[in-house]
Structures are given as C-alpha cells and as structure tokens.
Write a protein that binds this DNA or RNA. Sequence first.
DNA 1: CGGCATCCATCGTGATACTG
DNA 2: CAGTATCACGATGGATGCCG
Lengths: 129, 129
Amino acid sequence: MKRLSSKSGCAVEVTLSVMGGTWKPIILFHLMHGPKRFGELGRLISGITQRMLTLQLRELEDAGIVLRTVYAQVPPRVDYALTPLGHSLQPVLVALRDWGNNYARSQGQESGVSADGHTDHTDIEKKCL
Amino acid sequence: MKRLSSKSGCAVEVTLSVMGGTWKPIILFHLMHGPKRFGELGRLISGITQRMLTLQLRELEDAGIVLRTVYAQVPPRVDYALTPLGHSLQPVLVALRDWGNNYARSQGQESGVSADGHTDHTDIEKKCL
DNA sequence: CGGCATCCATCGTGATACTG
DNA sequence: CAGTATCACGATGGATGCCG
C-alpha cells in the first residue's frame, strides 16, 4: 500500500491504505474478538502465508492499529491485540460487511436493490471465515 | 482488484473488491454529485491516466455500480452515472472518509505523518464527499 | 513458536502512441 | 471526445530455507 502520496489526499484513501487489502480486514475481524497469537491467526485465516501474516501485522502495528506483545519465554509467544484506534475501526468494518452482504444478495437473486442501503444486521462474528 | 468471494467468502472482501483501490472511491465520490462525462472525470481526478479511468469505470460498470450511457453523436459523448446500487455505497464511503479524517488528525498531532512526508491535510475535507 | 531473508512469478499501473 | 493497444517497470505475494 503506497498511496499516501500526492495522488489525492483523499481521506478514503487513507483509511483503505491502513485497513484495506486482502488480509487486513480479515485479521482485524479476528482480533475484534480479542487478542490472538500468531499461529492462532495463521490457523484461523485460511490461505494466508506466514510471510503475509507477518507483513500485514507489521503494517497494522506501525499504523497503531494493533499492539504486539512479546513474552520472553520458551517456546516463544507473541500476542496481537487491537489498540483503541483499532477498535474504532469496527463501524467501518461493519459498514463494509453490511454492504458486501447486501451486494452478494442482489447479485444472487438479480433483483432490484433499494438505494437506502438497508441491510439486515447479522452479527460481525460469524460472517467472516 | 480481483479477489472475488472465492477467497474467503468474507463480505468485507466483496465490498473492497467492488469499490476499493486507488481510484474507485474517488470516481464514486465525484459521481455522487451527479452524472459526469468521461473527460470531466479525467479533469476532476488529478493524476489519473486515461487508461486507468477507462479500466476502473469498466469494472464499476460490470459490478452494476455505474451506468454507462453512450450518445451516438459527433463528437462522441459518454455519460457515467451511479445506479441505485451505486448510491447505496454512500454510507460506506462516508464511514471510510470519517475514519480517515480522524486517523489523519490523530497522526498529525503526534509525529511525522506516515511514510509519506508530504501529506496535504488541506484537501482531505473537501475532496471526499 | 514466531519469525526474517532470499528468489522468483505475477499483477497493477504509468507512459506513449494510435483510432472511430 | 472517448477510448484501445503495446511496452516496461516496480510492487505484490508465494515458496523455501534459516534462525533465536
């Protein structure tokens, strides 16, 4: 993600550069439920490579979204948890998820879609992975 | 942006595949204010190439987000307008913009901003919605 | 266990030129 | 005006191996 440049200065871009992409939203979703260990996340997120998980977590950490806690013990243990700033992303993720569900439904039945953005509020917990 | 639901089935992914990326949010933002011609969008969106504008508009059209209207006349004239489904994205864009503004402000107060070094916060407010 | 380093294939995107 | 075609390059991400 390297779009913070003089492209547009658009706030939407800022948000997407922080939590957009293939893996970050999924990681954040899992962390919404509480702190997770590295291997735990790797097992929860099907298809992600160790490399990608590391890189994405680092970016989230640098952005101040997640907090990385290393326990000096054997075997090593590292916890990842959301910061308050990270938790503040929940409404955004919910909006994205709701629209996605609505879109999937409209594509599925090919019927008209109301412009009022109405969606059922299925909970955030079970809809992702 | 071609990570359709096959990846994880996550609704957030679906939404981001439809309206995420560098240009689509900005295009959608401009179309929120009403239909625009191709060249009009090109002039409004600073930095975009003709190629990218075409590609992104095609993807939005295929997703059912924008409607492309070609007028058989000389010189050629093509209008792009949001469909009802496209208008339903407004809350999502607003959520993304609001969080981005909040994030930019919190980062701006502390230390150097992001990996950019040259962030114009001035444009943020007006350029998006 | 939880990484990081390296190599390499693919993708996204800009630049440029051409067209109905 | 509103595209399309082609080339090139850097970023993205997978596979693998090594380390504390």
